[in-house]
């Protein structure tokens, strides 16, 4: 058996070298954020870049805490956590129903969900803002949470996972006299648990970074998320890059840690969500 593919050819060496260079370029911004956040003004504005802060300072973080950066972080956590919880509940129920229940207009509803997913999200944001103001939710965290929950990706993902539940098991449970709710909690939930995990982590990360929605819905410093807070900070402080990098680090590090911890779930979420779009 020939294994031409794994042989070391000049092409392979070249592609690994290129991959390495690219990997450096792709990780560099994060490195530059973290190191930058510990640099003093002199190191920040040095004509030749200071590659590593030799005398690190924490003043940037101290100044950041004077803004209510911690409350920005708490707002973000609340939005992500609540959106995650609500999506996991609603999407799991709906995904199961679409996959396993034969109710009227099922196919039609599902295709509307899929079509809405292909629509550019931002196009609906102006009317959404008006609607949110009308409901009296503007400048509350719910203004970001509700539209996030409405987005149909979760339903689509959970439908994919629910397809794998064998109909015979559901039938057997029904014959045993279990009610619908009991079946859902005791049989369905454990079987789609990996899907819920993928959806949870996916929702958390995308809600954390949904800057545009947060920017529109939250206009008071009290309700800022970390992304909006940092964006306003750089509007105001301009070239105070030390402070801005501290903010960027505070926005990025928690979510990067979450991503690294749950990377497998996350990857499964995006691959499952793509099958036969």
């Amino acid at each position: 058996m020939q294994t031409t593919v794994q042989r070391i050819t000049p092409y392979r060496v070249l592609s690994y070298v290129m991959l390495f260079i690219l990997a450096v370029i792709f990780t560099f911004p994060l490195y530059w954020i973290v190191t930058g956040s510990f640099k003093d003004a002199q190191a920040i504005n040095a004509p030749a870049p200071v590659w590593f802060p030799t005398n690190p300072i924490t003043t940037n973080y101290a100044r950041l805490m004077e803004r209510p950066a911690i409350s920005w972080l708490l707002n973000t956590l609340f939005i992500c956590g609540m959106a995650m919880l609500l999506i996991c509940i609603t999407a799991t129920m709906a995904g199961y129903a679409i996959a396993k229940k034969r109710f009227a207009c099922r196919a039609l509803i599902f295709s509307i969900f899929v079509m809405a997913m292909a629509l550019p999200k931002q196009v609906i944001l102006i009317p959404l803002l008006k609607e949110i103001s009308f409901l009296g939710l503007h400048n509350t965290l719910w203004a970001v949470i509700f539209p996030t929950v409405g987005w149909p990706f979760g339903v689509f993902l959970m439908k994919q996972f629910s397809e794998n539940i064998p109909g015979s098991i559901l039938e057997a449970t029904r014959i045993d006299g279990a009610g619908e709710v009991q079946t859902f909690i005791q049989i369905v939930l454990p079987m789609v648990a990996p899907g819920i995990g993928a959806l949870a982590i996916f929702t958390f990360i995308s809600a954390w970074n949904d800057y545009f929605l947060q920017l529109l819905m939250l206009n008071t410093a009290r309700t800022y998320t970390i992304s909006v807070g940092i964006a306003k900070l750089q509007d105001e402080m301009f070239t105070d890059f030390g402070l801005i990098m501290a903010g960027a680090a505070l926005a990025a590090i928690p979510i990067v840690v979450v991503f690294l911890m749950f990377q497998r779930f996350f990857t499964r979420g995006i691959t499952m969500g793509a099958v036969k779009g």
Binding site: L86, I89, T90, A91, M93, A94, Y96, A97, I98, K101, R102, F103, A104, R106, I109, I112, F113, A116, L119, V123, I124, L125, I126, P127, L128, K130, E131, F146, P147, V149, G150, W151, P152, V155, E180, F184
Partner: peptide, 24 residues
Amino acid sequence: VGYAFMLPSLLFFLGFVIFPMGMA
């Protein structure tokens, strides 16, 4: 049963996606 399971998701979807889409 199907619609009961769909209801929470449909409420959010109709309220915060379809309605603003129509309004746009």
